[in-house]
């Protein structure tokens, strides 16, 4: 063994141990978030149908049907369109969102009665999406850059004790967010999120989101088909069911231009 190789080996060992030692909880949290993001790269475009059931404390229900179109954008946040089918009085109303990794998202609203396309403020992160327990920020594209992270622990996945999950805390970067932090349970097999606890600005538990019925598309991309959001402070809940997910639908960037909203159905 030459002196040179010994030196190299020693350096390697040192570097490795330094790396292992130096990965703070924040670094590990970010690393896992980046890995999860990478694992979902390349899905391209998709469409789906959604049924959203709003329930109040008394158990009264109100149902919304809408359809989604999604486009993955290289180097920036994804683009999406949601088109309402029910309730009938808002049928045809559509929302177009261009999310950005940093800075505010761009958002347009289409009002079919006037055939009017309206650029709207995207500052309304914490507002309720059509009266549901989902806030706009819960449904928008979850870009890595929108949070800072902290690794917490490793434990059995909620609802599936056979799988093990990482528990991460993430802190919204945007000051308009309605949350001080979120606790995320993500499985170690496929980086699927099983549960998120949302803490309000006073740091008390506000809502819990449970994601289930995961199915895989194009061999790589897992999508939850059932999302249940429970508001612990009001007793209200919202269930969101996804149906007819399709990938590779041929949607392209021009289908997400604000000027196509006028022909959206």
């Amino acid at each position: 063994m030459t002196r040179k190789t010994i030196f190299a080996a020693l350096t390697g060992v040192l570097l490795l141990s330094t790396a292992a030692y130096a990965e703070t909880d924040a670094e590990k949290g970010l690393r896992l978030a980046v890995e999860a993001d990478k694992a979902d790269e390349g899905w391209g475009d998709s469409t789906s149908e959604m049924i959203m059931t709003l329930r109040n404390r008394q158990g009264d229900e109100s149902v919304r049907y809408f359809r989604g179109q999604n486009l993955e954008v290289d180097g920036d946040g994804d683009k999406s369109i949601s088109i309402f089918d029910r309730p009938a009085d808002i049928k045809g109303t559509a929302v177009l969102t261009h999310t950005h990794k940093t800075g505010p998202d761009d958002q347009w609203l289409y009002l079919p009665a006037l055939k009017r396309v309206k650029r709207i403020s995207s500052a309304n992160k914490s507002g309720s999406f059509v009266g549901s327990e989902f806030a706009f920020e819960d449904l928008s594209s979850q870009e890595v850059e929108k949070y800072t992270y902290n690794y917490v622990s490793e434990e059995a996945c909620p609802g599936d004790s056979g799988a093990s999950c990482w528990v991460l805390e993430r802190f919204p970067v945007d000051e308009n967010s309605g949350y001080s932090r979120q606790a995320v349970w993500m499985d170690q097999d496929e980086y699927r999120v099983h549960k998120i606890d949302f803490y309000d600005r006073k740091d008390s538990l506000l809502k819990t989101l449970t994601l289930s019925d995961y199915r895989v598309y194009l061999d790589d991309y897992w999508r939850a088909h059932r999302l249940e959001m429970v508001n612990h402070q009001t007793g209200k809940s919202t269930e969101l069911i996804f149906e007819n997910y399709e990938f590779g639908t041929g949607l392209e960037d021009r289908d997400f231009d604000e000027s196509v909203l006028k022909r959206i159905r």
Partner: peptide, 12 residues
Amino acid sequence: YTFFGVGESDVD
């Protein structure tokens, strides 16, 4: 100009 969620409600 919109005040979103006034008084911790959902009202804008």
